[in-house]
Amino acid sequence: MLNYFHSLLFTMGKVTLGVASSVGRGALFVASLVPALPYAFTRIDLLVKQVYFSGVLSLPIILTAGLFVGMVLSLQGYNVLVDYNSEEAVGTMTALSLLRELGPVVTALLFAGRAGSALTAEIGLMRSTEQTSALEMMAVDPLKFIFVPRLVGAIIALPMLSMMFIGMGIFGGYLVAVGWLGVDDGAFWSQMHAHVDWKDDVVNGMIKSVAFAVLVSIIALFQGQDAIPTSEGVSRATTRTVVHASLGVLGLDFVLTALMFN
């Protein structure tokens, strides 16, 4: 019994220390990254490549997901609103849900799974095959060459992906509501137009998206940097990226929502 208690204490202590030291390493990593940020704009070629990798290549999954999410929102919304004879509001409801919450959040979750995991794996493998060491030996700073373009690339790509997700979602909602359920075409759009506010809804949604981009890509880059440079270590780090980034996005979303819409 005492033995059991002892080992429980030991494990708790070990886990706490592990978490504390990885938070510390993360903070140091961010601190080293921030001063190097301006270099992203001295190397436009690298930046464009990263926007392509994390942005353009994520488009198919983002557009498909957006379409389905919009269709489901519209269908569920219609079923509720029709009882109150206000099914024209389904456009407003779909647009607001997408702009304020689902657009930024679901895009960030998909981005963590699609681009974040790829970033971690790429950097982890670069380290395990000594490519980062080789860069350092060639007097090329991996911070400026690898990390900063990926971070800034994600910050540019994610809000754009998010907007496309929202656009696609509204289109999906329109298809279901107007094309299938027979909501009036003009009412669908005019209600939406009247109730969506530029600053409250659109700008706030984009701010969220930028915040999520910073969070997801920093987690992904740090996990890649911090991975044990073996295949097992890299595969674990990839999993951690998806888990930490997803939970982080959901938690941060609550905080931002409380700040913005309260």
């Binding site: 493998l125 670069m126 095959t129 000594e130 490519q131 060491s133 080789a134 860069l135 350092e136 030996m137 060639m138 007097a139 700073d141």
Partner: peptide, 23 residues
């Protein structure tokens, strides 16, 4: 400093045991 080290390294060439080519 980091930048001084990089200046020095630009005078060095290193052949890594694993090759370490950019994949």
């Amino acid at each position: 400093s980091r930048s001084q080290l990089y200046v020095l390294r630009s005078r060095m060439g290193m052949l890594f045991q694993s090759g370490a080519l950019l994949t």
